[in-house]
Design a protein around this nucleic acid. Structure first.
Length: 272
DNA sequence: CAACCGACCTGTTCGC
DNA sequence: TGCGAACAGGTCGGTT
């Protein structure tokens, strides 16, 4: 579910609530939620630590602890982090809980159980983070063009490849390709310098606006921030989830096709 | 190297 | 109303 704008929105909520908090207790409830190492390792490493900073790398949240260790969280498809009073009844699918001060706790909720938490120890390499590609909001135009030209990939597959650009998912790849007027299956090394500049700008514009809107909550309302609030960006989607509706630029019906196993929404006339 | 496929899960929506 | 099929924001490992 969550892509870069949603994860960034969660990050901001975590930074606002958790920095300076001491984690008094850690509960790991589901057997799948901590799977890169023993669950007890996470409990031992995190209990008693204070939160120093909260960063984001791609779709990963990175909670820096006073020990120098990092608590790394990925929400995958259905994960949520909810900051609540501990005496509020727990919903279904709460798989981990961090108990903090003033009777508050951070809950990791995840119906599909694809999400995960793990500890990256201070000074140790972390393959999951180290293998990530460029941050889409930081990559410069020159480097961006080199990433497109350096291989022959379908543009959508390239945008979705976390080792190339970290944080883009199915919604925002479609939205930025539409904004740049490029087809999802265009070979990356055939994109002109002018079109590459358009895509670079579209990447920045779409992600920035989506973050400002607090991300996209779809019909089922799965995605919410740490305070339980949905994001507003869905109302601004121009193609994603809009099959059969008119293209906002030319009026032709938006189409849906599968590219690389993923539903892809696009305008046949505007995107080349 | 790139594309494709199934797998991992639960829940919701859609079509008959 | 019921029920199975299709589908879902992500990623990984194995094949073609």
């Amino acid at each position: 579910m969550p892509e870069l704008p949603e994860v960034e929105t969660v990050r901001r909520g975590l930074a606002a609530t958790m920095i300076g908090e001491r984690i008094k207790g850690v509960e790991v409830i589901g057997p799948r939620t901590v799977r890169r190492h023993a669950p007890g390792h996470l409990v031992g490493r995190v209990t008693g630590q204070s939160v120093v900073a909260v960063a984001r790398r791609g779709k990963y949240l990175v909670v820096a602890l006073s020990s120098g260790d990092r608590l790394v969280i990925h929400l995958r498809m259905s994960g949520q982090l909810l900051w609540t009073q501990a005496d509020v009844a727990r919903p279904k699918h709460v798989h981990a809980v961090l108990s903090c001060g003033d009777g508050r706790e951070l809950r990791f909720v995840d119906p599909r159980t694809f999400g995960e938490l793990f500890v990256a120890e201070a000074g140790a390499p972390c393959p999951a983070l180290d293998g990530l590609g460029a941050e889409p909001l930081e990559v410069e135009l020159g480097a961006f063009r080199a990433l497109l030209a350096g291989r022959r990939r379908q543009l959508k597959a390239l945008l979705l490849d976390q080792a190339v650009f970290a944080g883009i998912g199915n919604i925002y790849s479609d939205e930025m390709l539409f904004a740049a007027r490029l087809r999802a299956d265009r070979a990356s090394d055939t994109v002109s310098a002018v079109a590459a500049r358009r895509l670079h700008e579209a990447m920045r514009a779409v992600l920035t606006e989506a973050i400002e809107a607090g991300g996209s909550s779809l019909a089922d309302g799965q995605y919410v921030d740490v305070f339980g609030r949905p994001g507003d960006y869905r109302a601004r989607h121009r193609v994603y989830g809009r099959e059969g509706r008119p293209c906002p630029v030319c009026g032709r019906a938006i189409e849906r096709r599968v590219f690389g196993q993923r539903s892809t929404f696009f305008c046949r006339r505007c995107q080349r």
